[in-house]
Design a protein around this nucleic acid. Structure first.
Length: 410
RNA sequence: GUGGGAGUAGCUCAGUUGGUGGAGCGCCGGGUUGUGGCCCCGGCGGUCGCGGGUUCAAGUCCCGUCUCCCACCCCA
C-alpha cells in the first residue's frame, strides 16, 4: 500500500465515529447545563506560548511538541494541550473586562510527538473546560462534580484523586524541604529521579520505581506545608465536594506534569486502561493569566481524553431507525425517489436502493442499514397505486393507500 | 528515546522438518420467477507489511526497515 496514515495518527470510521460523537455530545450537554459556552481555538500557536504556560522544563515542551517555522519566519507549534490557547484568547480579547467570571469549553485535536501506544496517539482528542475569575473553592468542587457527572453519564468508571500543591508563597518552602530530604537518600533514587531532584523535585513523588516509592513514603507532605490561604482553600474545597456527594481519595503524592498548576489538582483514573489510565484531569492555575499578560485572574480547568473514554465505552447495537425504500422497475424507482424525498422533508431518515437489484438483495440492505421500515414499491403497487409497508422488527407487512397514511404509520 | 511481542483475505486467525496459501465471519449470487434475520449451496477476494539476502525452491531461515501492541517514560 502506497499511502498510509502517519505513525500515531488514526482515522475514525463509522461506527466508531458515531461513538466519538456521542462522547462529545454528552460532554457538551453536561457542561452547558452548568453554564459553559464553547470557544473554538486555533490548532497552532506561537511555540513560545506553550513554553511560557506549560513550562520550559516539562517534557511536553522539551521533546513532545511539533514545531515548525512558517513562511513568514514565525516559530509555530501544533498545540499539545488546550489551556494555553484558552488563556491567550481570554487575555487577547479582554474578556476579563466584560464579565466577572467566564466559563468556556472546547473540543478538538491535540498533538504530541510521543511513542504511540493504546490510549496515547500523536494526534489525540480532548474536551476541556476552563473557568476564569473565580477564586472560591466552591468553583473547584463544582467543576469536579461536573466532571464526574460527565463520566457517569458515559458509564465510565473512574476513581477521583485530589491534592493541593500550594501556591507561589508556600510551594517554594515545601520544595526546599523536599530537596533537602531527597538529597540525603539520593543513592536510593533511580537515575531519572536523580536528575529531577534539582530541576523538578515534585515529579519524584509520582515516580513508579520501587526504590523511589520507598524513599517517598517518608518524605515531607505538601499538605503539611500549605500556607494559611491554601490550607483553608483545600479544606473548604473538600467540604464542598462532600456536600455535592462526590467521592474522592486524597493523594498527597499527586502532582501534575504541567508547571502552571496551583492549589487544587485532581485526576480521574480508570483501572481498565493499563498504563495510560488517566481519563480526565486538571486543576487550578491562579498565576497563568497574569503570566500570559493579563490581569491577576484566578482560573481552573480540566481536560478529558476522548480517545481514552472511547476505549472504555461498550459497543452497543445500532437501533433501528427510519425507512428504506425498495423498488422494482423504472416506474417504481421514480415513484420511490419521490417518496424518499417526501419522507425526508417530513424529517424521517430515508434511504432508497439505487442498485435496482432483486427484492431479496434490497431487503438485505434494508436490514443491514438498520432501517425500522421498508417501503416496497413493485409492479403491483405501481399498477394499483398503493405502497407496501413492512416493519422489519416484526416482519408485519401492510397495504398503505397514500403518502399521508404512510406518514401516519411510521 | 529504551526494552519486549506481533504483522497472512475487508475482520479474527490457522499454516508442520523450506516444496504451487486455508478456515470462520463479512460481501455477492442461488435455494424462494416479489421480501431481511436462521439454514443449505456456490462465488468474489491475497504483492503472506515493505526491501534485500541464503536456497533448485521462502509465508516459513537471515539482515534491514515500517507499522501496531505491551512496559518504561510521558500524560488526557
Amino acid at each position: 500500500m502506497e499511502f498510509k496514515a502517519i505513525r500515531g495518527v488514526e482515522d475514525i470510521l463509522p461506527p466508531e465515529s458515531l461513538r466519538f460523537e456521542k462522547v462529545v455530545d454528552t460532554f457538551k450537554k453536561t457542561v452547558e447545563l452548568y453554564g459553559f459556552k464553547e470557544v473554538i481555538l486555533p490548532i497552532f500557536e506561537e511555540a513560545k506560548l506553550f513554553s511560557r504556560s506549560v513550562g520550559e522544563a516539562t517534557d511536553i515542551v522539551q521533546k513532545e511538541m511539533y514545531i515548525f517555522e512558517d513562511k513568514g519566519g514565525r516559530v509555530i507549534a501544533l498545540r499539545p494541550e488546550g489551556t494555553a490557547s484558552a488563556v491567550r484568547a481570554y487575555v487577547e480579547h479582554g474578556v476579563f473586562a466584560k464579565e466577572p467570571f467566564t466559563k468556556w469549553f472546547y473540543v478538538g485535536p491535540m498533538f504530541r510527538f510521543e511513542r504511540p501506544q493504546a490510549g496515547r496517539k500523536r494526534q489525540f482528542f480532548q474536551a476541556g473546560c476552563e473557568v476564569f475569575g473565580l477564586k472560591n473553592p466552591g468553583a473547584d468542587a463544582e467543576l469536579i462534580k461536573m466532571a464526574s457527572e460527565i463520566l457517569k453519564r458515559l458509564n465510565v468508571n473512574a476513581e477521583l484523586e485530589i491534592n493541593s500543591i500550594g501556591c507561589k508563597k508556600c510551594r517554594p518552602e515545601y520544595r526546599r524541604a523536599l530537596i533537602e530530604f531527597l538529597r540525603e537518600k539520593v543513592d536510593s533514587l533511580c537515575p531519572t529521579c536523580k536528575e529531577r531532584l534539582e530541576r523538578n523535585p515534585l515529579r519524584v513523588l509520582d515516580c513508579k520505581e520501587e526504590g523511589c516509592q520507598r524513599v517517598v513514603e517518608g518524605a515531607p507532605k505538601i499538605t503539611d506545608y500549605l500556607c494559611e490561604e491554601c490550607e483553608e482553600h483545600y479544606k473548604k474545597f473538600k467540604e464542598y465536594l462532600n456536600l455535592l456527594g462526590v467521592e474522592f481519595k486524597e493523594n498527597p503524592l499527586l502532582v501534575r506534569g504541567l508547571d502552571y498548576y496551583t492549589k487544587t489538582v485532581f485526576e480521574f483514573k480508570s483501572s481498565e486502561l493499563g498504563a495510560q489510565s488517566t481519563v480526565l484531569a486538571g486543576g487550578r492555575y491562579d498565576d497563568l493569566v497574569k503570566e500570559i499578560g493579563g490581569p491577576d485572574t484566578p482560573a481552573l480547568g480540566f481536560a478529558m481524553g476522548i480517545d481514552r473514554v472511547l476505549l472504555l465505552l461498550p459497543e452497543e447495537e445500532e437501533k433501528r431507525e427510519g425507512v428504506f425504500v425498495i423498488t422494482r422497475g423504472d416506474e417504481a424507482y421514480r415513484k420511490g425517489l419521490e417518496v424518499a424525498e417526501f419522507l425526508r422533508s417530513k424529517g424521517i431518515k430515508t434511504q432508497i436502493d439505487h442498485r435496482q437489484g432483486s427484492f431479496k438483495a434490497q431487503m438485505k440492505a434494508a436490514d443491514r442499514e438498520r432501517a425500522a421500515f421498508a417501503v416496497i414499491i413493485g409492479e403491483e403497487e405501481v399498477q394499483e397505486g398503493f405502497f407496501s409497508l413492512k416493519e422489519l422488527e416484526t416482519g408485519k407487512q401492510e397495504r398503505v393507500e397514500s403518502l399521508e397514511e404512510l406518514l401516519g404509520r411510521l
